[in-house]
Structures are given as structure tokens and as C-alpha cells.
Simulated assay, not measured.
Amino acid sequence: MKKVNIIFIIAAILAFAAAAAWPVLTSKPFPIQGMRPMVEQSSDASRVLQAVLVAACGLWLLVQPLQKSQPSLRFFQGIAVALAVFGFVRLGIPFGAIFCGFFLVAMQLRVHIQRRACPPVESPCE
């Protein structure tokens, strides 16, 4: 997996974990502007559930033995799309955007697996 994907996943997990814990820790505004509505307007259960979903899906992407097959990555992509749509419609842009990013990471992993499984075909002109 590319380093930028690993950084993205870890940053997403940390941001949502911080947002879930923020109201318990302090009454100051959340430092990430786009996530302030989540922190200020969501219930405690909603914030914790969002953080758990982001952490679970992010950790699944980070554990390489789980992504060795095309079907498992396709299944994950379906979950990511469903959560992205649900996030954009009901929860907020940050949640939807994170799952769009998770979908793209899974797509890159699928392409990488497919390239390893199918060696390049030599051109008959060579």
C-alpha cells in the first residue's frame, strides 16, 4: 500500500476519534472547521458510532491479509459506497468524504492485485 494511503487512513481514524472525544475533553470549538457540526450538533452515540465505523473500516484497509482477494475488496467497496452516500445525505460531508477516500484506496488495492495476477502480455509485433 502506498504511504499516502496509510497516512490518509490514520489521519481519518485520528480525526474521527478526536471528534468523538472532544466534547468530553473540552468546551472549546473543535479545531477542524469542517467537522465542527459533527461535534456540536451530533449526539454522543452518533459521534461514537461514526468514529467506530471509520476506525473499523480504516483498520480493515491497513491489515494486508484481509485484502488478498478481489471479492473481499469488492465487498468492502460496496460498504464504502453505501456509507459514503449515507454520510453525505444524513451525517455530513466529512463522513461521506472519508468513505469516498476509503473506496478509492480499495480500488487501488484491487488494481494492484489484478496487475500481480495477470502478467503483461507481450506484443506480437516485438
Rank of each mutant, 00 (worst) to 15 (best):
124 P>G: 03
44 D>M: 12
102 F>N: 10
73 L>E: 00
93 I>T: 15
4 V>N: 11
124 P>Y: 03
25 L>I: 15
62 L>V: 03
114 Q>V: 05
102 F>H: 10
83 L>K: 00
35 M>K: 09
121 V>K: 04
67 Q>Y: 00
87 G>R: 00
125 C>M: 12
119 P>R: 07
55 A>W: 02
67 Q>A: 09
16 F>K: 06
49 L>R: 13
53 L>V: 05
33 Q>W: 07
115 R>S: 10
50 Q>A: 15
56 A>K: 07
36 R>H: 03
91 L>I: 15
73 L>H: 00
52 V>S: 12
85 V>N: 13
4 V>Q: 15
6 I>Y: 01
12 A>K: 03
113 I>Q: 11
119 P>E: 06
120 P>K: 08
29 P>A: 08
10 I>G: 05
7 I>P: 01
70 Q>E: 14
71 P>W: 03
121 V>I: 11
99 F>S: 08
92 G>M: 07
80 A>S: 12
74 R>V: 04
113 I>P: 00
34 G>W: 10
4 V>S: 15
95 F>R: 00
87 G>I: 04
16 F>E: 05
41 Q>L: 14
100 C>I: 15
68 K>F: 02
44 D>I: 10
118 C>T: 13
15 A>N: 09
6 I>G: 05
27 S>A: 14
31 P>A: 02
12 A>L: 07
19 A>M: 13
82 A>Q: 02
46 S>E: 15
63 V>A: 10
5 N>D: 15
86 F>S: 13
33 Q>E: 13
22 W>C: 11
5 N>E: 14
70 Q>L: 10
5 N>K: 00
125 C>T: 15
118 C>P: 00
72 S>F: 01
32 I>F: 09
102 F>E: 12
28 K>E: 13
101 G>Y: 01
72 S>H: 05
88 F>I: 10
105 V>H: 03
79 I>V: 15
106 A>Q: 04
11 A>V: 13
46 S>D: 14
4 V>E: 15
121 V>S: 04
30 F>G: 10
45 A>N: 09
21 A>D: 11
72 S>C: 02
67 Q>P: 00
72 S>M: 05
31 P>T: 01
19 A>N: 07
75 F>Q: 06
38 M>Q: 05
123 S>M: 09
40 E>C: 04
41 Q>H: 14
61 L>E: 02
71 P>H: 01
107 M>E: 13
64 Q>W: 05
86 F>W: 12
83 L>C: 06
74 R>I: 04
1 M>A: 10
95 F>N: 02
25 L>N: 09
95 F>H: 04
54 V>Y: 00
96 G>V: 10
24 V>H: 12
65 P>G: 11
108 Q>K: 07
36 R>D: 01
50 Q>I: 03
124 P>A: 06
109 L>V: 07
85 V>W: 12
57 C>I: 00
74 R>Q: 11
47 R>E: 13
97 A>C: 08
38 M>G: 08
79 I>W: 04
56 A>V: 15
101 G>F: 00
76 F>G: 01
123 S>G: 08
20 A>T: 12
98 I>D: 06
81 V>Y: 03
101 G>T: 01
79 I>R: 04
106 A>V: 06
13 I>Y: 06
62 L>K: 04
62 L>F: 04
66 L>Y: 03
86 F>H: 11
83 L>V: 08
